[in-house]
C-alpha cells in the first residue's frame, strides 16, 4: 500500500465499500499509516463519517487529530438516541470554543454536497444549526445557505435548516437567498422566491433580483427579526418591516409626539405600510420637503397619499 493513496480519491472514485475495505486492511497491517491518512488536512467530513465505525471499533480515536476527535464527538452526540433535557454542553473536550466552531464549519462545508444516508444528513443539518444558533458568525451564512439549497435540490427536508438559517438573527442572511434569484436553475429561483415571499411584490416582478436588492436596501434599517417558523405557519416571514420607524425615522413633529404615534397606530396595516413607503420616498427626495410634510396633520398626509396613488394608478 502506497502512502500516496488518498482516502478522498478512494471514496469518490471507488465508492464507500472499497474505501472501508482498504481502511480495514490498512488498520490490520499498518495502523500508523492508517492514522496518518485519517489525519490528513484535506480529509473531508463525509470520509470521516463513513469510516467512523471502524475508527471506533479499532480504538483509533485517541490517535486522531483534535479536529477529527471533536467531529466524532459532535457526531456521537447528535446521533444519541435519547437526549436528557438540559444535558450539559457536551464539547468540553476543547477549551477553545472557536475551535469547535471551525470543526462545525468544516463538517458542513465539506459535507453539504454528500447525501449518504438519513443519519448522515441529520448530523450535517444539526451541525449547521449549531453554527447559526450558537456561533452566529456572518461568514457561515453562505455555507449554510448552500446546504439549504442542496437539500431542496435533492428533495430532502429543509424544515430544520430553514429554521436554523434564520435563527442566525442576521439580516444579511437574506442576501445569499436573494442571490439565488439570479440562478440559471429554475428550481433554485423558485425556492428563493418561496423563502422571500414575505417581500411584497416580489412574486409578480419579472426582475426579482433587482427588485429584491431595491427592497433590501430601502428597508434594511427598519427590518426586525420575526420569530415565526414553518412550525407555526406556512407563510414564513423571518423579518418584518417596522413601518412606524420607516415612517417617522428620527423625526419629532412640532405637535406632541405621542399624539402622532397614537394616530399612526390607529391606521390599518396596509395604510401604515403605504404611508411609511411614501414617507421614505419623500425623505430620499428632499429632507426639507419631508420635514414640511411630516409637520402636516396625519389626515392631510393620508389625503396626499391617496392623491399620489390616484396619479400612479391613472398613468
Amino acid at each position: 500500500m502506497k502512502h500516496s493513496v488518498s482516502l478522498e480519491m478512494l471514496r469518490k472514485k471507488e465508492g464507500i465499500k472499497p474505501l472501508q475495505q482498504y481502511m480495514n486492511n490498512l488498520i490490520e497491517y499498518d495502523k500508523k499509516r492508517a492514522v496518518s491518512l485519517l489525519n490528513e488536512e484535506d480529509l473531508t467530513y463525509p470520509t470521516l463519517y463513513v469510516l467512523s465505525s471502524y475508527i471506533k471499533e479499532k480504538q483509533l480515536v485517541k490517535y486522531l487529530s483534535d479536529r477529527n476527535k471533536i467531529a466524532l464527538s459532535i457526531q456521537k452526540d447528535i446521533l444519541a438516541k435519547e437526549r436528557a433535557p438540559a444535558a450539559p454542553f457536551p464539547y468540553s473536550i476543547c477549551d477553545l470554543p472557536q475551535y469547535i466552531h471551525s470543526v462545525l464549519r468544516w463538517m458542513v462545508e465539506t459535507g453539504c454536497e454528500e447525501k449518504l444516508n438519513t443519519r448522515y444528513r441529520l448530523v450535517v443539518d444539526r451541525a449547521a444549526g449549531l453554527l447559526t444558533t450558537i456561533y452566529q458568525h456572518p461568514d457561515d451564512l453562505s455555507v449554510v445557505s448552500k446546504l439549504l439549497f442542496e437539500r431542496k435540490r435533492a428533495g430532502h427536508s429543509t424544515h430544520y435548516i430553514t429554521w436554523a438559517y434564520f435563527s442566525s438573527h442576521h439580516i444579511g442572511s437574506l442576501l445569499p437567498i436573494g442571490e439565488k434569484l439570479l440562478s440559471s436553475n429554475e428550481e433554485e429561483v423558485n425556492f428563493a422566491r418561496e423563502l422571500l415571499h414575505f417581500i411584497p411584490g416580489l412574486d409578480q416582478n419579472e426582475e426579482p433580483y433587482a427588485y429584491f436588492r431595491g427592497w433590501y436596501e430601502e428597508n434594511l434599517p427598519y427590518l426586525l427579526h420575526n420569530e415565526n417558523s414553518y412550525e407555526l405557519t406556512a407563510e414564513l416571514a423571518p423579518y418584518i418591516v417596522d413601518h412606524e420607524t420607516k415612517y417617522r425615522e428620527s423625526f419629532f413633529p412640532l405637535h406632541t409626539t405621542n399624539l402622532r404615534q397614537n394616530e399612526f397606530h390607529t391606521l390599518s396595516e396596509q395604510e401604515k405600510e403605504q404611508l411609511a413607503n411614501l414617507s421614505y420616498k419623500i425623505r430620499m427626495r428632499s429632507r426639507r420637503e419631508w420635514k414640511e410634510w411630516m409637520n402636516r396633520p396625519l389626515s392631510a398626509q393620508l389625503t396626499f397619499m391617496e392623491e399620489v396613488q390616484h396619479d400612479y394608478d391613472s398613468r
Partner: peptide, 29 residues
Amino acid sequence: HNIPPDYLPGDIRYVKNPDVNPLTPEWQG
C-alpha cells in the same frame, strides 16, 4: 392564522421556545 378576537376551544395555539437546544430543533415550539 391570525390574532382572533377571542380564543375558543378547538383553536390551535403555538408555544414558542426561542432558546431551544439546536440539537433538538423539533422542540423549537
